[in-house]
Design a protein around this nucleic acid. Sequence first.
RNA 1: CGGGGCGUAGCUCAGCCAGGUUAGAGCGCAGUGUUCGGGUCGCUGAGGCCGGAGGUUCGAAUCCUCUCGCCCCGACCA
Length: 570
Amino acid sequence: MRISKLFGKTQREIPAEADTISHQLLLRAGMISQVAAGVYSYLPFAWRALRKIEDIIRDEMNRAGGQELTLPVLQPLELWQESGRDQAFGKSLFTLSDRRERSLVLGPTHEEVITQLVSHHVQSYRDLPLLLYQIQTKFRDEPRPRGGLIRVREFTMKDLYSFDVDEEGLEESYQKMLQAYKNIFNRCGLPTMLVEADSGAIGGKDSHEFMLLAESGENENIYCPGCGYAANAEKAEIAKGTIDGGEPLPLEEVATPGMTSIEQVSGFLGVPQNLTLKAVFYVADGEFIFVVIRGDLDVNETKLQNALHCYELRMATEAEVIEAGIVPGSASPVGIGSIRIVSDDSVPVTANLVGGANKPDTHLKNVNHSRDFSADIVADIALAHAGDTCPKCGHELEATRGIEVGHIFKVGTAHSEKLGALYADADGVSHPIIMGCYGIGLGRLLAAAIEQNHDEKGIIWPMPIAPYQVYLCPLYRDNTEVSEVAERLYTELEAEGIKVLLDDRTESPGVKFNDADLLGIPLRVTISPRTLEKGSAEIKRRTEREFELAPLEEVTARLKELVAEGIKTS
RNA sequence: CGGGGCGUAGCUCAGCCAGGUUAGAGCGCAGUGUUCGGGUCGCUGAGGCCGGAGGUUCGAAUCCUCUCGCCCCGACCA
C-alpha cells in the first residue's frame, strides 16, 4: 500500500473528546471515526488489524473443533421473553418494531437464537458435543459508552457456544476453549491474566475472564503472588480470619456522643474495627435491605446482588433509611422488625460485636448473631482489597487493573430448559443440553492492544496483528535512485508476502518518521542517498531506538527473518 | 438516571462575561517557492447557517427559553 493512497490521515493534535490513550491514538492515526456515542467507523488501517486478530481467532476456534456459522442480528422479542432475559438485559436491549408492529431486538448476544437453532437440529446424544461459533456484530445500549473502542454500543464479537450431554463433556469443552483463548492472546502478542469471574445471576458455576493488564482498565483484579490465585474483584474471595470475641456477654448500651462511623466508634470505645458491626442499606428491586458485615470489611455489591437474586441493586438514600425507622450512624439490626437482613458470613462467627443501638449517640456492646438478631441470608459478601489475605495460601493479595477481552463461562441448562433444547440419551430419555458460552470482543481487543503497546510517539503493534509489517520510508531529496530502489524493494517485499506500507510522499524526514512511529508498524526501512552511498538500507524496529544497516541485496531476507521472529516470539 | 463539562472551518481553539463593520488564529487542505535524517520556512488561496428551534433587540456567535448531540465522573454494564 502506498501511503499517498491510504484512506485515513494522521493528525498532529490530540482530539478533544479522547481521554483514553488507545482512543487518542486510534483517532490520531486515522484508524477510526465516531458516528454516534459508542458507534464508530473503522477505516482501512484499523480494519486490517482487526482482520489479523479475526484470522487468529478463527484459526484457533477451528483447531479446537469449532464450526463457524452466522446467526441473525435481528431477533424476535418473544424469544427473549421466553428465556426471561429481556428483563435481565433491560434497557441495554435495543428494540424496534417492524411494519406490522411486531417487536424485534438487535441481538446483544446469541444464546437464545443458537439454543433454538440447536433444539431444532439436535435430537440425540449422537449429535453432541457441538462447538458452534460466529464472528459478528452485537448491539448493546450501554448506559455509558466510553474510552473509544473500549465500551461501545455496536461491536464485533466472536461468540462460541458449546453443547454437551453431561458435566464432564462441558468441562472438556470448557478446557478446550480455555486453551484456545490462551493460544489466541499469545499468538496476538498480548499477554493476559486469567481470572475467576462472576457469572452473574443467570450463569452457572465456573466463569473466567481474560484480562489484558492496563492502567486504564475498567476492572480491578485481585491476585496472589504466592499461589497464583487470581479473580476479578467482583468475585474475589479473601481469608477473613476469625476473631475471638470470647464467650457471648450480655447486651449493653453505651453512650457514644457524636460517633457515627466505624472508625470513630472503634476509636472512642477502644475496640478493634474487626470487632464492630457495619450496617449498610440497599434497595433491591424496590425492597429495602439491611446489610451487615464485620466493621473492617466492605460490601461487594456484585456478591450482594447474587445473594439477593435481584436485577436492580442500589444504595438506599438517607431519606429511605430514616423512613425505614433506622437511625443513620447508629443503625442496628437488633429489633428492626420485618426488614430483610443480609449478613456477611464473617458476622455469625464473631462474638460480642459493637454495633448501633438504633438510638442517636448510642451503640450496643456484645451484639451476637442468632441471639440478638438473625440474618435472612448469610453469605460471603465481602469486597477484596490489595493487602487482604489469600484464601488459598495465606499470602498477601495484590491488585491490578485490566481490560476484559475475553469471557468464558459454564451456562449449564438454564437456556436449554427454557427453550426446549433437549437430547435423547442412549436409553431414549430426554435431557436438557448442557451449554457453555465463550466470547471475545474484537474491537475492544484492538483498543486494549494499543493500551498495552504504545509509547509517547504512538502505537507499537505486536507483529502478529500489525496492519502492515514494514514501513518503507524513502527520503527522496529529488533523488531518482532512492525512489528506484524503494520501488524495487517494495515490489520484492510484496512478492515475498510481506505487507508493506510505502511512504511515497515528498514529506520531510521528520514528518515521515513521526507518522511511522504514530502508526506503529513494527519494522521501518529507510532508504536515502546517505544509505545508498553504502549500498544499504536502514532497518529499525519500532520497539528500539537503534537501527541496523543492511546491504540492499540482503534487506528482503533480513526483513523476512525479522517478521518471522516477530510472529514467533509474540 | 444523578453530577460536571463542551458544541464556532476537516482538527485544536480564540471571540461570548460587557450584543454593533465583512467571525479569527494555528494545524490540515489546494497552488507555489524554499528546505531536506525527527512534525523546515515563506507567499497565495479555498473552506463557517457560530449544533438546532423559538424569543428579546434597530441589530444576536454573544442575552433568555426550549431542544438535540458529544465527553468525563458515578450509577449501570448476562
